[in-house]
Simulated assay, not measured.
Amino acid sequence: MARPQRIVLVRHGESEGNADDTVYEREPDHALKLTETGWDQAKETGARLRKLFGQEAVSTYVSPYRRTHETFRAFGLDSDQVRIREEPRLREQDWGNWQDRDDVRLQKSYRDAYGHFFYRFAQGESGADVYDRVGAFLESLHRSFEDPDHPPNVLLVTHGLTMRLFCMRWFHWSVAEFEALANPGNDETRTLLLAEDGRYTLDRPFEHWRLPESYGATG
Rank of each mutant, 00 (worst) to 15 (best):
D100C: 08
A57P: 02
G46W: 11
W170I: 04
G96H: 05
G135V: 00
L141C: 06
P212K: 09
A176M: 12
L194E: 10
F53G: 00
A128G: 04
H12M: 11
A182T: 10
R111E: 14
R3S: 02
Q81V: 15
G46V: 09
Y114R: 13
L106T: 07
L106W: 06
V58H: 06
S63M: 15
R26L: 12
P184D: 00
G198K: 14
G135H: 03
D132Y: 03
K33T: 05
D78S: 05
L165S: 00
A42T: 06
H12E: 04
L194P: 07
P4H: 01
Y215L: 15
N97W: 14
L193D: 09
F53D: 03
S140T: 13
T162W: 01
K43H: 01
H142M: 11
D20Y: 12
R210E: 15
H208D: 10
E213Q: 14
W170Y: 02
Q5E: 13
G219Y: 12
Q93I: 13
E56D: 13
G135Q: 06
G127A: 01
A2L: 11
E125H: 08
D100G: 08
R73S: 14
G185H: 02
R6A: 08
V154K: 10
V10A: 07
E36V: 03
E27Y: 09
R48Y: 14
A2W: 08
D103V: 09
T162M: 03
R210W: 14
R6I: 07
V134A: 01
E56T: 08
G127H: 00
Y215G: 13
Y114N: 09
P88N: 10
Y65D: 03
G160F: 00
R111H: 07
S79P: 11
E86K: 14
A182I: 07
D147I: 13
V175N: 02
P152K: 12
L155Y: 10
L161Y: 11
F75K: 04
L202R: 07
D94G: 05
R120H: 00
P28W: 02
R190I: 04
S174R: 05
E70M: 08
L202P: 10
E188L: 00
R83D: 06
M168E: 05
L9K: 00
Q81W: 05
L156Q: 05
V10M: 03
L194I: 11
S140C: 09
M163I: 07
L90V: 01
E146P: 07
R66W: 06
E25I: 11
V58W: 02
R83W: 04
R11A: 00
D94L: 05
D80V: 15
S174D: 14
A19T: 12
F171L: 12
H150N: 02
R89T: 04
P205N: 01
P88Q: 04
E146R: 15
L49A: 09
T158C: 03
V104K: 06
V58D: 08
Y119T: 06
G54I: 10
A176W: 07
F117S: 07
N183K: 05
R199E: 15
I7K: 11
F117E: 03
V130K: 01
R204H: 12
G115P: 12
G38L: 02
P151F: 03
A195G: 11
R199M: 15
R85W: 02
F145R: 01
T218I: 11
T162N: 04
G124Q: 01
H142V: 15
F178H: 03
F145V: 06
H150F: 15
E87D: 07
A42Q: 07
S59N: 15
G115R: 13
